[in-house]
């Protein structure tokens, strides 16, 4: 459904919003009494009773028993981060620009960089404190190289408030890359996974 009509909060003929029909409030005691009598004998109370009894009889249970059953999550779900590699070469996509570190509103990303033997900036360590991370997704959004994305791992139970993931936890292992297990983030510049893709989707 198109969301535009819902954006118009003004009540009108076109809008799906409408005023609820509210009875005028009784002012005199006699009116109040009449209202009580009306409500008592109109059987509104029994409607309520019937509704819940009907649901009990239908026994249409909506509960998901979480640890045993899990709901499928959306591909853009923002769970624990991943660092991706370039499809073509297997190099790390991260260039160490530090934008994720800068934009992080809970200040939980830190990285160490140095100059490597090829005069390139090398990220030696990368850590996210999941105890502070609010999974807002800014880091993934700001990343110019599509290097940091959110993965699907959302179970972060930990014995400590400060719970870190480091580069090794997040970086796609090379054998996963070769076996095609690195999932692409289906956002800006994404590729369709079923094509035999070899190119990293960096839109220039």
């Amino acid at each position: 459904m198109h969301s535009e009509p819902l954006n118009d909060r003004n009540v009108s003929e076109q809008s799906p919003y409408f005023y609820v029909d509210i009875e005028t409030y009784p002012t005199t005691s006699w009116d109040k009494f009449k209202q009580v009598v009306k409500r008592t004998f109109k059987g509104e109370l029994f409607v309520g009773l019937w509704v819940v009894m009907r649901e009990m009889i239908k026994f249409d249970i909506h509960t998901v028993q979480y640890p045993k059953e899990k709901l499928p999550i959306g591909p853009r779900y923002r769970a624990v981060h991943k660092l991706l590699r370039l499809w073509e070469s297997g190099y790390e996509r991260c260039i160490g620009c530090g934008l994720c570190e800068k934009i992080c509103i809970s200040d939980c990303i830190r990285m160490d960089t140095k100059i490597d033997e090829n005069s390139r900036k090398e990220v030696t360590e990368y850590s996210i404190n999941l105890g502070r991370c609010i999974f807002c997704g800014y880091c993934a959004e700001v990343c110019p190289e599509l290097a940091i994305v959110h993965g699907q791992r959302y179970e972060n139970g930990s014995e400590q408030r400060a719970h870190f993931v480091i580069k090794d936890d997040m970086l796609t292992p090379l054998d996963w890359l070769t076996s095609g297990q690195q999932a692409e983030f289906p956002g800006f510049g994404a590729i369709t996974p079923n094509e035999s893709v070899t190119k990293t989707p960096l839109a220039y």
Binding site: M53, E55, I61, H62
Partner: peptide
């Protein structure tokens, strides 16, 4: 249990 069933839940399980 009764409240849960009436609210389409399972209650303690």
């Amino acid at each position: 249990k009764v409240l849960a069933f009436m609210q389409r839940r399972l209650g303690p399980m």
